[in-house]
Nucleic acid binder design. Structure first.
Length: 548
RNA sequence: GGGGCGUUAGGCAAGUGGUUUAAGCCGCCAGUCUUUCAAGCUGGAAAUCGCGGGUUCGAAUCCCGCACGCCCUACCA
């Protein structure tokens, strides 16, 4: 059976596949999220590892949406996931496929198992369970229940057929053998074994005819020729059931590699309901992370390079190709990792997300933006990329960001391109996110006086000494009179002026910084002055008279 | 209740019996640089390797027990 992406023409795909086949290995992996409306960092990491594995070995990486649960299935819910993957650049070779498109195949498989005796009809009436406290309810039920054999397990086929024909509702359950055990060798967790008696007769098909998860995954993975199943450790226990299904279906069992989970700081599983937007990857996109930087920090959660290379001590920063080159299942850890965001911050974040993710708000309120709101290492990684990546690669990101707050001008790529590059290069050293260019960097890119002043800075550098109210506008005149406006000429002018007035140069330097940028921190002042340029510098220094 | 998986500093982690008196990174602290803030550089604090037994000349590394956390145990995925 051929899987085909919705709406994608079959022919080019087939051609691509042929070319692909010729040069690549037969390894096929998939990322199979359920459409929950957003991609959280754990899911992103699973996608990343599948992708890295495929890219490393020349395999095929497939995206499949597990929308078997009709309640969760709608386009809106899928979009969040696609957006997250797109941002991270985790491009898939095939798909996206939708599990629900293959109901019929799953049903056929269930009836096939019924026919050859691997499954049976269970006529027990459906037990209603509320979704709310299902975990406890199930655990509680199992606590008290004495394991009793399903009365329909050994019902004769004739009687079973007759009751079904009479219209009686039933589910199809897998018939787990009484004696023996399943085993598989997990590429991460090692050899796994489980007695048949510890595996219950799982339901394959609901009474309304819908196939259930365990059946569906196995069918799809078989149909798609998946050779390596790389997924979260929460599926480790389920794997035994799936192995049983592969065997009953007479198909080869793929290699399983289970990944340690990424947990919240309180060690609980990441969830949208509990942790909100702070665990969604699109939040990191909107907050100004670079996809490569975020990917890099994600890769280090639950994996580390198996061997340190010649001449390398220990590295944390890896480009995408370097990650691909080094990735191996052997480097995956067994223990869960914590994505160390601040839980309290997460709540504030949640309540203010409209503001915090609105570039326009942030641009005007940069100093109200929380400094340390998420995993510190991820933040450091982002800052590291911003300050060390080739400038030419950073520029397009800055452009997009500036466009989003209407700070972009075509000249930045034309007449002023040289200036623009110098400016970005100057300020990037102390920025941690792309958003900083639009917020903290606003004063550099905007014309005239259209930028915000940080209260603290004004207090500290402009109001502290009353003399500044007249000194700075006077300095503006000196700057204005300069025929050559350079780092050295402006410094000489300022220092001479300070001496003349009998004040410390530092007073004027700090005052000027705030006058020009609204901030108390920034690059070396004379670099700032030259980047801001004569016209704006003079204008902004004169404006001090109105500020204090 | 049953079954499974895990447990090295605040977080990420190296390390699978012997120069480990336990790497490195983030964070934290201090010094240095400086006109500010970062960055950089230098240094520091922080781990009885979950706990208790055992094996061994020697254990974070092997064995047993316990505790804790997580997962599965649904006509959810």
């Amino acid at each position: 059976m051929a899987f085909r992406g919705k709406g994608s023409p079959a022919a080019p795909l087939a051609v691509a596949r042929i070319i692909h086949r010729k040069f690549m290995s037969d390894i096929r992996v998939r990322f199979a999220p359920s459409p929950t409306g957003y991609l959280h960092v754990g899911g992103a990491r699973t996608a990343l590892f599948n992708w890295l594995f495929a890219r490393r070995l020349g395999g095929t990486y497939i995206l499949r949406i597990e929308d078997t649960d009709k309640l969760r299935n709608n386009e809106e819910m899928v979009r969040g996931i696609l957006e997250g993957l797109a941002w991270l650049g985790l491009d898939y070779d095939e798909g996206p496929f939708f599990q629900s498109d293959y109901y019929e195949q799953h049903r056929t498989a269930a009836f096939q198992l019924l026919d050859n005796g691997w499954a049976y009809r269970d006529f027990t009436p459906k037990e209603e369970r509320s979704d709310a406290n299902i975990k406890q309810a199930v655990a509680e039920a199992n606590r008290q229940a004495v394991k009793v054999k399903n009365p329909y397990r050994d019902l004769s086929r004739a009687e079973s057929d007759a009751r079904a024909a009479a219209g009686e509702a039933f589910v199809i359950r897998f018939k787990v053998p009484e004696e023996g055990k399943t085993s598989f060798d997990d590429a991460v967790y090692g050899p796994q074994e489980r007695d048949y008696k510890d595996i219950e007769d799982l339901v394959l098909l609901r009474s309304d005819g819908h196939p259930l998860y365990n059946l569906s995954v196995v069918c799809d993975d078989i149909a798609m020729g998946i050779t390596h199943v790389i997924r979260g450790q929460d599926h480790l226990s389920n794997t035994h059931k799936q192995v049983l299904l592969y065997q009953a279906l007479g198909k080869p069992v793929p290699v399983f590699a289970h990944l340690p989970l990424i947990l919240a700081p309180d060690k609980s599983k990441l969830s949208k309901r509990k942790h909100g937007e702070i665990v969604s990857v699109t939040t990191y996109r909107d907050a100004g992370f670079l996809p490569d930087a975020f990917l890099n920090s994600l890769a280090l959660l639950g994996w580390s390079p198996e061997e340190v290379r010649e001449g390398e001590v220990d590295r944390e920063v890896f480009s995408r190709p370097e990650l691909i080159e080094r990735f191996s299942l052997g480097g995956i850890h067994k223990s869960n990792a914590v994505f160390n965001f601040d839980l309290r911050e997460a709540q504030d974040w949640q309540s203010q997300k409209e503001q915090l993710l609105d570039p326009r708000w942030v641009a005007r309120n940069f100093y109200k933006f929380p400094r340390s709101w998420t995993d510190q290492k991820a933040q450091w990684m982002n800052a590291e990329y911003i300050k060390t990546m080739p400038l030419a690669e950073l520029l397009p990101y800055v452009k997009t960001k500036l466009q989003s707050v209407d700070l972009w001008r075509a000249e930045f790529e034309g007449a002023e391109s040289e200036w623009f590059q110098r400016a970005v290069n100057l300020i990037r050293d102390r920025y941690r996110t792309l958003n900083d260019f639009a917020s903290l960097g606003r004063a550099y890119f905007v014309a005239g006086l259209d930028f915000e002043f940080e209260e603290e800075a004004v207090k500290k550098n402009l109001k502290k000494d009353a003399a500044l109210k007249t000194l700075l506008p006077e300095l503006a005149d000196r700057f204005g009179a300069l025929s050559e406006f350079t780092h050295d000429s402006t410094e000489a002018a300022l220092r001479a002026f300070a001496e003349e007035k009998g004040v410390k140069a530092g007073l004027l330097i700090n005052g000027t910084r705030t006058a020009l940028t609204g901030q108390s921190a920034g690059p070396g002042l004379f670099d700032v002055v030259t980047i801001i340029g004569q016209t704006r510098a003079v204008e902004r220094l004169r404006n001090v008279a109105n500020l204090v």
